[in-house]
Design a protein around this nucleic acid. Structure first.
Length: 298
DNA sequence: AAGCAGCGCAACCGCAAGTGC
DNA sequence: AGCACTTGCGGTTGCGCTGCT
């Protein structure tokens, strides 16, 4: 190293500046919560991982007291197994994690890793993908063509249709009081995405935000990370891993082991979500929304 | 008590982007 | 523009702890 590249090793500590920074951000930084993850945190991680893939920094931005490293470790050591076990007992489909990119080789991952500058575009494209998935789902041949996550070559993250199902599900859960939607996240003082009128998603640990054009609601609210309140919803959060997306969607409206109130979707709240998902004419000519939801509810 | 395996967590590594000169 | 350095990120590794035999 000659002059030791970046800053000299700190006297006695044998740490370079990079190591020091890492240790600070992951371990020493004040405000970091350590140890047991709460049920709610766990569910949020599962949820976010399914939606965002292994973007730990982005996920961590929703859990301000946790570091990306912590979340990553927790995922790798606990949740992965948990979901695998769940899936095994659930028979068919792969877990959100495996459908994301955890099964890809390290080198492949490196090459596909998005640069920071591509975040916004990627998020936008995720939204587009979700829209397309819903469009697909609404189309008459949906149940045949919808490819479930995991296997799909083009599916970088968890099945988009599944995501939609989750979005809808959580949307339904949180619809009565708009203030409760995403409240868990917004409770934390440092979450930058609490303002319903500010359609931005925090990206990266630094709290910088990327504007995402979501009509009417914050992305957080749309995602509906409410999960009920803590333990109460714990049994219901086993995020539908199996079956076709349509079946999943169907299931989310039906009583799922008595997990939730399964009243019919409220028209008003549906229209908001639909407005977002269906806007820009992406669903032009598709089956009417009422047909879709009616079919789902049958 | 010793040996072993499994687990969890902190740290490391490599890459890409950002920044300043 | 080009270079050196910093920062941020995600994947991986190494080590200490724990439980089991």
């Amino acid at each position: 190293m000659g002059s030791m590249g970046f800053h000299q090793y700190f006297a006695g500590l044998l740490r370079c500046s990079k190591s020091c920074r890492l240790r600070w951000t992951n371990y020493l930084r004040p405000g970091i919560k350590r140890g047991n993850f709460t049920d709610h945190e766990e569910k949020m991680i599962i949820h976010l991982q399914a939606l965002l893939g292994n973007r730990w920094a982005a996920i961590a931005s929703y859990l301000p007291e946790r570091t990306d490293n912590d979340i990553k470790n927790y995922w790798n050591t606990h949740l992965k197994k948990k979901l695998t076990m769940t899936n095994n007992s659930d028979s068919s489909s792969p877990s959100p994690s495996s459908s994301a990119n955890s099964s890809i080789s390290s080198s492949t991952r490196k090459s596909t890793k998005p640069s920071r500058g591509q975040w916004e575009r990627r998020l936008q494209s995720d939204i587009q993908t979700a829209r397309r998935a819903l469009s697909h789902a609404i189309s008459p041949s949906s149940s045949v063509h919808l490819n479930h996550g995991g296997g799909g070559a083009g599916s970088t993250y968890a099945s988009s249709a599944d995501n939609i199902a989750r979005l809808l599900k959580d949307w339904m859960k949180n619809k009565p009081t708009s203030s409760s939607a995403g409240s868990k996240v917004c409770d934390s003082q440092s979450s930058p995405s609490c303002n319903d009128s500010a359609e931005s998603i925090p990206i990266g640990g630094g709290g910088e935000s990327v504007a995402v054009e979501l009509p009417g609601r914050s992305f957080n609210a749309l995602l509906g990370f409410g999960f009920g309140s803590g333990d109460g919803a714990s049994n219901c959060s086993d995020l539908s891993h199996s079956g076709s997306p349509v079946a999943t969607t169907k299931r989310m409206f039906k009583a799922e082991e008595g997990c939730e109130d399964v009243s019919h979707p409220d028209e008003a709240s549906l229209s908001l979500l639909e407005k977002w998902l269906l806007e820009e004419g992406s669903l032009t000519g598709a089956v009417g929304k009422h047909d879709f939801f009616t079919a789902v509810l049958e």
